[in-house]
Each structure stands twice: as C-alpha cells, then as structure tokens.
C-alpha cells in the first residue's frame, strides 16, 4: 500500500507529537479513563517505550534476516542443495507456529524480560525471509542463470551480480512481513515483561483503563503502519527500474 506523501507526513507528525507531548491529547482520551485514573500512561515515557519497542524489533530482525538470507543462499548452492527440501518444508511448517507460542516457550528457557521476546522475534523472523529469499533465488529464470555462467561469471560473481539483485525485492518483502509480525509479537512480549508499547495496553487491560488501551493500541498500530509503509517504499525502489519481478 502506498500512502500518498501527504498522508504519510501527517501520520508521522501525529505520531511524533503523540509520543513527545502525550498530554496534548489527554482531553481526547479522558472520556475513556475511569474517574480518578490517569489518562496518559505514567509509569514510563511513551517516547522511551516506543524506542524500546523499535529497538527490540530492529535488534532481532537484522540478525534474523541476515541469517535467513545466508541459509537461503546456502541451500540454493549445489553444495547445500541437499537441504533445500528441508528448508522449504520448515519455512512453511514453522509459520504454522503461533508467535505467542514461541514467545511463551522462550520464557522457561531464558526467564522474563527482553530476552524471550528477542528470541521469539529472531526465530519467528527467520521464516518469512527464508521463504521469500528461497522463492527469489530459485525464481531467477533459467536462461538468465545459463547466460551468467555462459558469460564466464564465477559462482560468486553470479550470486552477487545477478541472483541477489534479482531476488532483492522479494527478500525485502520478506523482511517487511517479518518486521510487521515482530512489531506485533513485541507488543505481546510485554506480557513477559519486555519493555515496549504493549506494556501500556496490558496496564490498561489490568486496570480497566481504556484510555491506556487505546493510546497503546494506536501507537503500536501507527508504528506498524509506518514501518510497513517505509519497507514497502524500499521494496518498490528496488524494483522501480523493472516491471518484471522474479516471483516463482
């Protein structure tokens, strides 16, 4: 989805204003808060929570995307072809695991806090990137691969100059899916004490304070929409110069 530049700018401004000066919006939220309860979340600054939320996502997704890409490259080389069916099957099968389950099962292993969330985001982030990178790399047309070999590219040159650039838009699409899921899972991570915007929603649910629920929900949603939009722009820029994508 491509938001028009104006909508994009408005959304960014609104979110920045909300995060930096939440009190400005207090009158709007007041009807939702029970009498005598705070309207704006007060146990941490919204700006800090937003940064934590994003930070967790970035810290998990970058290594996750790199590892998934490396794995996809490995199993599409002749030497790793042995593992291609397994990687394909795992990529599909693993996505039937609900992110919540991955998150919850990490708690007994590493305890409460940011770690279980990081682990869940990392593991869950692997699959969409793996799946898309595999689709991208194995979707390079045969004639193009043959031509690359025929021109005398070494396997490494072929990978860097032909295969990866052609698979890049799909890979970015995979990162985009991973990241949006990660933002969502990181919110749930607040149930295991990860710092982030989910904390605001949980606090609201626990205290029956809908003002908290709504401000946490709106910010999390805005974060996801902004990141989704930005990565969509990146993917679009990567294939701007050619209409043909290489999706299998």
């Amino acid at each position: 989805m491509k938001a028009a530049p104006f909508v994009r700018l408005a959304l960014w401004t609104l979110v920045a204003a909300f995060v930096l000066w939440p009190d400005l919006f207090a009158p709007l939220l007041r009807p939702l808060a029970p009498d005598g309860m705070p309207v704006i979340y007060d146990r941490a600054r919204l700006a800090d929570l937003t940064l934590w939320h994003l930070g967790l996502v970035v810290a998990a997704i970058i290594p996750s995307a790199l590892l998934a890409t490396a794995l996809a490259i490995l199993v599409t080389r002749p030497s790793g072809a042995e593992f291609l069916p397994l990687a394909r099957a795992l990529g599909g099968f693993g996505q039937t695991f609900p992110p919540v389950a991955v998150l919850a099962l990490a708690v007994p292993v590493v305890g409460f806090g940011a770690w279980p969330t990081l682990i869940a985001l990392f593991l869950y982030g692997l699959l969409p990137v793996l799946e898309n990178a595999l689709a991208g790399l194995s979707g390079v047309p045969r004639a193009v691969m043959l031509a690359a070999d025929g021109m005398g590219m070494t396997p490494r040159q072929r990978l860097w100059r032909v295969e990866l650039p052609l698979a890049a838009p799909l890979m970015v699409e995979g990162v985009r899916i991973s990241t949006v899921i990660a933002i969502s899972t990181a919110a749930i991570g607040s149930t295991v004490a990860a710092p982030g915007l989910g904390e605001v929603i949980i606090a609201g649910l626990n205290a029956n304070n809908l003002a908290f629920v709504v401000q946490g929900g709106l910010l999390t949603a805005a974060l996801a929409l902004i990141v989704h939009d930005a990565l969509g722009l990146a993917a679009h820029a990567l294939k701007a110069h050619r209409r043909v994508t290489v999706a299998g």
Partner: peptide, 8 residues
Amino acid sequence: QDHGLFPH
C-alpha cells in the same frame, strides 16, 4: 534462445 539478458 531466450536471450537470457539480465533483467536488472
């Protein structure tokens, strides 16, 4: 035959 030009 299919010229195999690099699409990018």
